[in-house]
């Protein structure tokens, strides 16, 4: 192919509207307008920006990578360098309305402690994570005999930051243990279509490639 890209490139709209990552769009939809939000593991700040634009939230972020932090601050977001495992304990009780952990739970050293801290800092917590119970993951392991590598989990066993993977059923169980309840939950299949809400857990767990849960703190403190 000897094509000059510029010559044949279709004319693009002046301001292409970037489609936010699927789970981010769902999370943004779960947050009440004007809320105080802490995004733990905020990366380059895409969700915080989305929340500021769509919901006018008062957002703060914590990000482990200095590169991510620098990008966020340069965008005008309030973000500090920190670690979900060690730095959440510095935050006061009820400092936020929502504490969000998107695609990060599985990379924490102590996920249960991180979740408990989130529900202490905010009355509500939103967590998105890749479902290890997804049928393709199960199939790769069961029939291929190899550690699974899928679209949501595209790392090899030796270079993955994901040290605490869980299934949707595992997650539902730990939420119960923490005395929190699930206010809303959404699971998506590979195509990004949500799984019917009325479907039983095992259907979610088998066909959901990723899930997003909105939790509310229980009455008793843990």
């Amino acid at each position: 192919m000897n094509v000059t890209p510029a010559a044949n490139a279709p004319e693009r709209p002046a301001q292409p509207l970037e489609q936010p990552r699927l789970d981010l769009a769902v999370i943004a939809e779960m947050v009440a307008p004007g809320a105080r939000v802490l995004d733990v593991g905020c990366g380059d700040g895409a969700l915080l920006q989305l929340l500021a634009q769509k919901k006018g939230v008062d957002g703060r972020g914590v990000e482990l990578s200095q590169r991510g932090v620098n990008e966020c601050v340069a965008k005008g977001l309030s973000v500090i360098q920190g670690d979900a495992d060690t730095d959440l304990s510095d935050y006061p009780d009820d400092g936020f309305d929502y504490v969000i952990l998107s695609q990060t739970l599985q990379a924490t050293r102590r996920p249960r402690a991180a979740l408990a801290n989130m529900l202490r800092i905010g009355r509500r917590a939103i967590i998105s994570f890749p479902n290890f119970g997804y049928w393709r993951v199960r199939a790769q392991f069961a029939f291929g005999g190899r550690m699974p590598v899928t679209g949501r989990l595209d790392y090899h066993w030796h270079d993955t930051p994901n040290i605490h993977l869980c299934t949707i059923r595992d997650f539902v169980e730990i939420v119960d243990e923490l005395g929190a309840h699930i206010e809303r939950g959404v699971a998506f299949d590979r195509a990004g279509a949500p799984i019917r809400f009325s479907a039983p857990w095992w259907v979610w767990n088998l066909f959901g490639e990723q899930a997003v849960f909105l939790l509310e703190r229980g009455d008793q403190r843990l």
Binding site: Q66, V69, L77, P92
Partner: peptide, 18 residues
């Protein structure tokens, strides 16, 4: 400083420049 500001609920960014 950042920890103290967080504990006080302040709006704070923190960047360590390489």
């Amino acid at each position: 400083i950042v920890h103290a500001l967080n504990a006080g609920g302040a709006s704070v960014s923190f960047v360590e420049i390489e």
